[in-house]
Design a protein around this nucleic acid. Structure first.
Lengths: 340, 340
DNA sequence: GTTTTTAACTAAAACGTTTTAGTTAATTTT
DNA sequence: AAAATTAACTAAAACGTTTTAGTTAAAAAC
């Protein structure tokens, strides 16, 4: 029941604690026979270092904190999976916390992580977050901070993102390229930069292809739900029978919209083409399958941790950390909801 | 940058470390003016106890570990959310790990958590897990262990489950009650007890209602995907045109199956009724909406943590822990995929 | 006015590790 | 054979907290 300590090994072997510690860490000033003896006994006694003592002494816990807006979410859980997998490879464990899209909660979670003395923090911001002192506190405390997906450009830390604007541009361009003339857009709420960027990408694509931007073709989804997609599909067609393409902020809403369009007797993609965003796993399953932008969640998690790890190393070796923004590739996945 | 310590406060105030420590913890043997002074300074200096030192001294970290088979999964991420939310209320943080349905990985994750010295462990077993020494190790190390959803009856620890058999019975009974005579079943793989239990519940319901069990109406899903559901829908109808109801192990597969049946020109529920399992959020969104069993993931997470917390308390007070199995209510949610 | 009690504080050990600065004894150098 | 070097080990501090067992001085009791 009681865990073996260095003391225990030292006592049975009649050597000092330092000798045991050094033997286990392969210091050069310990004799080979002693090393062998110590290691053997360590194995027999099933010795594992007491992490609390190690933490105290080394001032690091090999633990990082992650804050995301929402756990039950395909994209974010993919990111988390990527983070955890990558962290494990490097001997780090991950404490996950959820901001629930609330600024107050996000601040609180940062507090918790800081009080826990995690070695570093990964965060994707809540929609409600507009000031960033809590993030600066993290850095002031000497903890590397990496933001991913929902970031704040103003904070001077490393970031892992996709180019939402460019991706949205390509999504919209695909609609144009496949013959759409009247292209609507279901956008996300006003706050996270991402939904603004996607909207801007949509607008730019119209512009570049001499299609006049018509604000009445843009709908704002606040809940980003299936039902919202369905509802806006109906609303759109009600007033604009001539619409022949829609670029939709996220796949779930897009699938809702497809259901809505089908209810109205429209054929996809003959009557109306749809492009989603995120490549949710259902997008390939439904009929017709959904053309969409692949948002690499798992990879983003991996890359974000890798970056944090690099900064952790640099910090340890007293090398200055220069924040870096890493942009991940997105790809347009053409399926059946758009014409060929 | 450097964190304030008790020492710092003691020095500026000209008192001892013990006095400061006790003042902050409101010990009765410290004068009120001293307490006030200490607290004030603690606030000004922004003192927070060094968790590493506290851990070492108190031998607990206020951290628990959670292992689940798969992160990117509606049910499991709901459970995790419940756990984390509840844990936070009680001042605990959560380290999450994924077994990826592999026994080897599960063992490894247990190792990691044990080496990290978490205060307790919550686990939902991998399908591949058939021996349980690694779980016994957890308890032998004096760490409370609570299993949820995918459990092993043989392990003598607390458990939080649903009654899969009863729920499946009710699901199947609903089909019988609404007039189905030939009822098929798409079951899960052979390994987790849950899929066996659901199958047994299905069988029992047939039995109790004088419907002869026909093994050729039961299909085994190994991947539990949308596509598998669609495929088995086709296979089923190919050989059994008289089937008028299907109880399906999980909603995702059920939705796949519904797509399959629709492709074959069958009307749901007129020609064939469907009942799913888990109440995935898409189940209410699709058309027709899916009748299903509500599997309360979020609540399961909350209850599982609450139980662990209770055991943590008991252990602290040297009260014997008597393992308890908590069964959560499931409800049949009747929607449009079954007749009224 | 001495003893007893109480209030308010402190010393120091303990938690288990890591690492610096030694200390021995044996070996090599001159 | 004395001096210098090396190999192998150890003592002890340090990390920052908690808590037990005191200590001191003032207040209460007789």
């Amino acid at each position: 029941m009681k865990q073996t300590t260095l003391q225990d090994i030292a006592n049975t072997l009649g050597v000092s604690i330092s000798t045991v510690s050094k033997a286990l860490k392969d210091y050069p000033d310990i004799g080979i026979k002693t090393k062998a003896l110590v290691r053997e006994l360590a194995v027999t006694l099933n010795y594992t270092p007491n992490p609390f003592a190690v933490n105290l002494r080394t001032k690091q816990s090999k633990t990082i904190g992650v804050i995301i807006p929402e756990f039950v979410h395909y994209f974010f859980s993919s990111v988390i999976k990527g983070i955890i997998n990558e962290a494990e490879k490097k001997g780090y464990l991950v404490i996950t916390l959820q901001s629930n899209e609330s600024f107050e909660l996000e601040k609180r979670q940062i507090e918790l992580l800081l009080n826990k003395n995690v070695d570093g923090v990964l965060i994707s911001l809540a929609n409600a977050t507009a000031t960033f002192d809590h993030l600066k506190t993290v850095m002031e405390r000497g903890k590397p901070l990496v933001m991913f997906d929902k970031i704040a450009k103003i904070v001077n830390c490393s970031k892992v993102i996709i180019n939402d604007r460019e991706a949205a541009y390509n999504a919209t361009k695909h609609l144009v390229d496949t013959g759409c003339k009247r292209i609507a857009h279901f956008r996300g709420p006003l706050l996270p930069q991402n939904s603004i960027d996607r909207f801007l990408g949509y607008k730019k694509a119209l512009d570049d292809h001499n299609i006049i931007y018509d604000p009445s073709l843009v709908f704002i989804c606040n809940d980003m739900t299936f039902d919202e997609g369905k509802m806006f599909a109906h609303k759109l067609i009600e007033n604009h029978k001539d619409v022949d393409g829609v670029f939709i902020n996220t796949d779930l809403v897009a699938i809702g919209a497809m259901t809505g369009f089908k209810e109205l007797g429209l054929h996809i993609p003959r009557d109306i083409s749809i492009v989603g965003f995120s490549n949710w796993f259902m997008s390939s399953a439904i009929t017709p399958s959904l053309t969409t932008i692949n948002q690499p969640g798992y990879k983003m998690g991996k890359v974000a941790f890798k970056r944090l790890y690099k900064e952790l190393k640099k910090q340890k070796n007293n090398i200055e950390i220069i924040p870096k923004t890493i942009e991940l590739e997105t790809t347009l996945i053409v399926r059946e909801s758009t014409k060929t």
